[in-house]
Design a binder for these strands. Structure first.
Lengths: 153, 153
DNA sequence: CGAATCCTTGATTGAAACGGTCGGGATTTT
DNA sequence: AAAATCCCGACCGTTTCAATCAAGGATTCG
């Protein structure tokens, strides 16, 4: 029931870009250093996010990456689907990456029925969450940090 | 975000046993044939379910498997955890199989925060579902089948 | 122009996980 | 004792994963 590290890195990188969203472009090495992600690997992932239409790039000396659309338009479910494939826990209940399973009768499979609910609940959550939400959360969590610091002083 | 085939087989086998729950024991080959699961592989899985306390076995000529406790006491989340490990999509939000992640600040990670919600929603569903529910569903789905057949005739 | 910078692309690698199989041993019934 | 059945650990081929590398192309700055 796991997300791969690749998917995790993709979302962390997007959040990093979202927090600094502007016309300006940010370099791979900057993201890699700040987010503690292996640079060559991140390179690959950002490129993948680019072909998915989530980010866009500029080459050359002042090159780097930025979001290809406003954070509100980047849906987390979409990112995960592009990077990882199905959200569903088993192929036979996936809406976007359906695979038939080997059970004797798929239409009357109890497991399928309960897993469909799991899928729906995951999909519902990730479908309504956008990068903007992630950015807001990140900012809020940072704010809590500062408040704590004040309190301690 | 996937359950392995192994986990799927485990749940299908348990459902099979649940539907025929009694003092009598059912052979591996019977389950293997009915559920279309490779026999040697199923053997391994049932053994694993036994060490997990979900089923018990009898050896020798009239040997086989049966549930080790009533279906209402077998929680799906527990089965999956035993066979597969964490329910959580990433290790750093798992309650039972926590692993720390490499992000710069776990306590203030936005991704972690949203994934925790995903985990909770999955866990909530699978924690409240028991094998008895799966069995009920299976029976209901079979009934629909019969109703359809009657209607057609 | 030339050099430095940075993204692009595809190949490659090593390790782990996955799905599945095998041989032989232990137990029980007939 | 023979036959049926579970038990146990090793094994195997393939795929996936995480990560690295090498060579190349674009862009900007001096």
């Amino acid at each position: 029931m796991k997300l791969t590290v690749r998917g995790e890195y993709a979302l962390r990188a997007l959040t990093h870009l979202g927090l600094r969203h502007s016309a300006k472009v940010i370099q791979i090495s900057a993201i890699s250093a700040a987010e503690n992600i292996p640079k060559r690997f991140l390179e690959q992932i950002l490129n993948d996010l680019r072909t998915g239409g989530f980010v866009e790039s500029r080459r050359g000396v002042a090159g780097g990456y930025r979001l290809a659309k406003p954070p509100e338009k980047i849906v987390i479910a979409g990112v995960i689907r592009h990077i990882e494939g199905a959200l569903a826990p088993i192929g036979c209940v996936s809406e976007n990456y359906y695979e038939k399973c080997n059970c004797p009768d798929e239409a009357r499979c109890a497991l399928r029925s309960i897993m469909k609910e799991v899928r729906d609940s995951i999909a519902h959550l990730l479908e309504k969450t956008t990068l903007a939400d992630l950015v807001t959360r990140a900012e809020k969590l940072k704010a809590v940090d500062l408040a704590d610091a004040d309190f301690v002083i």
